[in-house]
Amino acid sequence: MVFSKIKSASFNNGNNSSFASHRCEYLLCLALDVGEGILKNGGEISRVEDTVSRICRAYGAIHVEVFAIPSVIIASIRMEDGEYSSQTRRVYGSENNLSKIEAYSDISYNVCKKCPPLEELDEMIRNQKRKKTLPFAIVFLGYMLASGSFAVFFGGSLRDGIVGALIGAVFALLECTSLGRINQLARTALESFVGGMMAHLSVLAGLGQNVDFIMIGTVMLLIPGVAFGTSLRDLLYGDFLAGSIKMVQVVLIALMIAFGYLLSSFVMGGVV
């Protein structure tokens, strides 16, 4: 890490002023690490801004300014001795990982309460980055359970639920392969197309009974319903830029889902 070099250099040359300046930079960098962890794992914009601000204030910053949108965090701090730091953090991609949000919030809570040395905070963040959450097999089960259950929930039969669960399993496999790392919109269109084709083919093969309910179950995995709610909430909170960006993402994802299913219906046109 760059900061470990900075720290050792500062200690070695014994330049206190330079060291204080680096401490200020180091503090903001770590606070942004925690903020990035929350943002990257689906946390709210207000939580990200609040967390970065609290950590910096706990370590003595007298003036903190934080601005976050879904892809960037910008923050500036000023310490009591006049040292100043301003940094920007670009956040690439995000997913919903509640364990990580909880873990980073725990770090923030403990750090603000106990103010451990920055090196200790650094170690806590590194440990958190290395830590694995639920194993893929469990997440795979989650995809099957969610898709199958909602196919039955919306009126499908048990057979529709089983087909829905199988399609959910395919989605989970797509997520864990290299396809999971491609552009989110392209991936959503591909998954919708695969889901639509599988739903149609399963009914043709006599495995499923109702294309509608199987597809509704699988749509539940893809639709950005929660993202729509959070974007509205951001707008209502006054985070207009973050809310608008999320809303555009939601609309584009919904269009990609429609495109994927439209394509599958077009390919299977008149058959079911």
């Binding site: 689906g42 989650g142 259950s149 929930f153």
Partner: peptide, 15 residues
């Protein structure tokens, strides 16, 4: 099924 679906999403969200 709503409760099972919730469990499924909780697993997907790595709760």
């Amino acid at each position: 099924t709503a409760m099972l679906g919730t469990l499924g999403f909780a697993l997907i969200f790595r709760s």
